[in-house]
Computed example of a mutant assay.
Amino acid sequence: MPTAVAELNGYRKDRINHDEPVPAAGEVEPPAWMVAVHQLADDGEESALQVWRRLAPDLIAKKVLTPWDVEAFAVYCTSVVGYRRAAIEVAVEGMTTRGSQGVVKNPAVTAMKDCADLMNRYGAKFGLTPSDRAALAIKPDEGKGKGAERLLG
């Protein structure tokens, strides 16, 4: 559990890592593979890179998204797009489809579930779910301290 969350949850002080490593300041850019996929798959739908560009600036400003987190956030952005695409397929084709053995569950339903699970798991790491966000507070002078000090209110 991250130090900031442990402190917010009232963990004993001797169980909290007060020397948590803090990423060095630096540019937070989407991974090169995400940019390449965006260029290859330009199909008019919102891409993972566009999700990144929509959400990342606010997360970077709040010091939640750092250079160390780019791959994990890329997984989140990719799962958002995967979920949307699967949801469209389910809306068009329905929850079931005809298979060789009769009516079967549309594989897009499973894809939706898998992407939703990834969105929840990775989104929680960045405070992108309401319950995870409720557990955190960010100081107005964020970034002045190190480790949990930059997140605790």
Rank of each mutant, 00 (worst) to 15 (best):
P31H: 03
W52A: 02
V103K: 06
V81Q: 10
G99D: 04
W68A: 13
V35M: 07
C77A: 15
V90G: 09
K63A: 13
A87I: 08
W33Y: 13
V103Y: 04
V81T: 15
A61M: 07
E46F: 01
E89H: 04
E27D: 15
W68Y: 11
P107N: 09
E71R: 14
M95Y: 11
V28E: 07
T66E: 05
A32D: 12
A48P: 00
W33N: 10
G82Q: 12
N106K: 09
S100C: 11
G99P: 08
D43H: 01
E89S: 06
Y83V: 08
D43S: 00
D69C: 09
N106A: 12
I60V: 10
K63V: 08
Q50N: 07
Y76K: 00
A32L: 13
R98G: 10
D69R: 14
G82L: 14
S47L: 05
G99Y: 05
I60R: 06
V51K: 01
V103T: 03
G99Q: 00
V35A: 12
A108L: 04
T78W: 06
V81D: 02
A72N: 07
F73Q: 08
A72P: 00
V90S: 05
P107K: 13
D42W: 00
V103G: 00
L65R: 00
K62W: 00
T78Q: 06
R85A: 14
I88C: 10
G94Q: 06
K63E: 14
V104C: 00
V75M: 05
Q39I: 04
I60E: 11
R84A: 15
V81F: 11
V92Q: 15
D43R: 01
D43F: 02
L59D: 06
A61H: 08
S79T: 10
E93Y: 11
M34K: 06
D43T: 03
H38M: 11
A86E: 01
K105D: 05
E93V: 10
V81M: 07
R84C: 11
V104T: 09
W52R: 07
D43Y: 04
A36N: 02
A91I: 07
A87N: 12
A41I: 02
P31F: 07
L59E: 08
V64G: 00
A56P: 09
F73Y: 07
T78E: 10
A91Y: 13
V35P: 04
P107S: 03
K63R: 15
V70G: 07
F73C: 02
V37H: 08
S100K: 14
G94L: 13
N106G: 06
Q39S: 12
L55P: 04
R53H: 01
E71V: 11
E93S: 15
A36M: 05
E27F: 12
M34N: 08
V75K: 03
E46D: 05
T97P: 03
P30C: 11
V80L: 13
E46M: 14
A87S: 12
S47T: 09
W33P: 03
V35D: 03
D58N: 06
W33R: 12
A48T: 01
P57R: 06
K63P: 03
